[in-house]
Design a protein around this nucleic acid. Structure first.
Length: 495
RNA sequence: GGUCCCAUCGUCUAGUCUGGCCUAGGACACCAGGUUUUCAUCCUGGCAACAGGGGUUCGAAUCCCCUUGGGAUCACCA
């Protein structure tokens, strides 16, 4: 485990869907390892399953990687001397290995169909006996096999797994993991259509691309022996391994769509801050020390070490994620927060398409910065600050029905009207009013807030008034008085 | 079921390799106070864990074994 090869790691997604949260974290650990060790991070696209590939998937994966800030040195839309980086474009090299395997005998043709093997598996399962691959064609002579192949008989290439060989994986996270080749079946290395399968090409490509460390999800641990056998058959140097623990859903099982959003894209579109998600992903299975849980990419790189990745799976805890999001948002510089949130305001139709962040909008947005967790929450929370009049919610209506509200609103409106603009000290003004009416601050602030914003929560009223401006503030107070007056008449008539 | 992995507060984790400094630390969540014109923030405090059993040792969360529990995987997907 102490080779001095240059560090080259890869993330190898298959373009069959959006980037999964677990995949994103694997990519992140690879990236962090490369960046912290002055190594190379490359992206390889595993598109050997022609049935399920799609260009949309590929694009969304690349977008998600970039959103998270995981830049790659080699791969699609990048340079690199070890390409092509799409497996579908590397078939010549695979063909060469196949030919060699056939010649050397570690690959052989198998004419059993997937269907009939499946029947055997079912039978074994029903009989509760352990399924063991029946290597029927293992000893067919090469001549006969080639003859049947030449006649066009459908066949796959299987890997001839040697018997009684110890296979020890030296894993940076788990230590030594021991297998015996007797537990490995003669797996399919090449499909009938000539396209090789994952375990075969993975080893071939990792070797060809001079990958020094294979950092991937723990679910791959059990098929690592197959890949090691390929290295041994070809006399290639093995990479070092690090199998990272799984991310678990609330049910304690591998995170899946059943237990929540699993695609990074979902979090992007829901307005999660990228830095927070990055931070959170790190926290799932990695720690810097005993007390640091909020950190930047730079801080991560300074501390990153495969040894600090834990072994057990980690539950995806949305509470903590949301806390992190809020924390990151609170730490943001006001201008970048405004920039991040502007698209959501535009989307909600609260500001015009071509809106730029003028001083007033800056002010407004800043007033809500410490109150939201996701960028996408701003429109709903700040809606009352836009337009001429707010909508009064239930609590606000109740507050406005209290005794003496009219006097309060009237007095405050008068004070606001009389004051210079921008108001030096709104609080002082209200205090004066409260003194005049012989009321506590709360008694005054509450109805004023209700009248001004339509809700009982939100930013400081001094900010609200400043953001609304003199005219709008006055209008809201006065129209609110009218509304109250009408409803009083109503209830008088009723009574 | 076979093979493999894992096991500290409800959750994420520090501590485990290199036994003693651990009457087990931090964070989220939760609860109780406080600051504040509201909400949010912020501050203070509280609740809460070494899965069980055997060893080894002067001494074990830390080392060994067993049990139990959880997970991954068992495709002509990756």
């Amino acid at each position: 485990m102490t080779e001095s090869r240059p560090v080259r790691v890869r993330f190898a997604p298959s373009p069959t869907g959006m980037l999964h949260i677990g995949g994103a974290r694997t990519a992140l650990f690879n990236w962090a390892f490369a960046r912290s060790r002055g190594g190379t991070f490359l992206l390889r696209i595993e598109d050997t399953d022609t049935e399920r590939n799609s260009v949309e998937s590929l694009q969304s994966i690349l977008d998600s990687m970039r959103w998270l800030g995981l830049d790659w040195n080699e791969g699609p839309e990048a340079d690199g001397n070890f390409g092509p980086y799409f497996q579908s474009e590397r078939v010549e090299s695979y063909n060469a290995a196949m030919a060699r395997g056939l010649t050397e005998g570690w690959l052989y043709r198998c004419f059993a169909t997937a269907e009939e093997l499946e029947v055997q598996r079912e039978e074994a399962r029903a009989a509760k006996t352990n399924w063991r691959f029946d290597a029927r064609f293992r000893d067919l002579s090469q001549e006969e096999a080639e003859a049947r192949h030449a006649k066009g008989e459908r066949n796959v290439l299987r890997f001839r797994v040697p018997e009684g060989e110890d296979i020890v994986i030296k894993d940076h996270i788990r230590g030594e993991v021991k297998f015996t080749s007797n537990d490995v079946e003669d797996w399919v290395a090449v499909r009938p259509n000539g396209m090789p399968t994952y375990n075969f090409v993975c080893a071939l490509d990792d070797s060809a691309m001079e990958i020094s460390h294979v950092i991937r999800g723990e679910e791959h641990l059990v098929n690592t022996p197959k890949q090691i056998l390929v290295y041994r058959a070809l006399g290639l140097a093995e990479p070092e391994y690090a199998h990272v623990p799984l991310i678990l859903g609330q049910d304690g099982k591998k995170l899946s769509k059943r237990t929540g959003d699993t695609a990074l894209g979902d979090y992007i579109s829901k307005g999660y801050p990228a830095d927070a998600l990055f931070n959170f992903l790190c926290l799932l299975g990695f720690s810097i020390d005993d007390k640091t849980d909020v950190f930047t990419r730079e801080e991560l790189l300074a501390a990153f070490d495969l040894k600090r990745i834990s072994k057990g799976g980690a539950l995806f805890d949305t509470d903590k994620l949301h806390w992190l999001c809020g924390d990151w948002i609170r730490r943001m510089q006001s201008p970048s927060f405004t920039a991040a949130v502007l698209p959501y305001l535009i989307d909600a139709g609260l500001v015009p398409e071509d809106a730029s962040a003028d001083a007033n909008l800056q002010l407004l947005v800043a007033a809500f910065q410490e109150r939201i967790t996701l960028y996408s929450e701003l429109p709903a929370q700040a809606a009352g600050m836009f337009g001429e009049m707010p909508e009064y919610d239930g609590k606000a209506q109740k507050a406005l029905r209290a005794d003496g509200v009219s006097d309060v609103l009237e007095a405050v409106a008068k004070a606001v009207d009389a004051s210079a603009w921008p108001m030096e000290d709104f609080s002082a003004t209200v205090k004066a009013v409260a003194g005049e009416l012989d009321l506590g601050m709360g008694k005054v602030m509450k109805p004023v807030r209700a009248a001004l914003t339509g809700t009982l929560g939100g930013p400081e009223l001094a900010d609200v008034v400043r953001i609304l401006g003199k005219q709008r503030s006055l209008k809201r107070l006065q129209e609110c008085l009218t509304v109250i007056g009408e409803s009083l008449e109503d209830s008088a008539q009723e009574g």
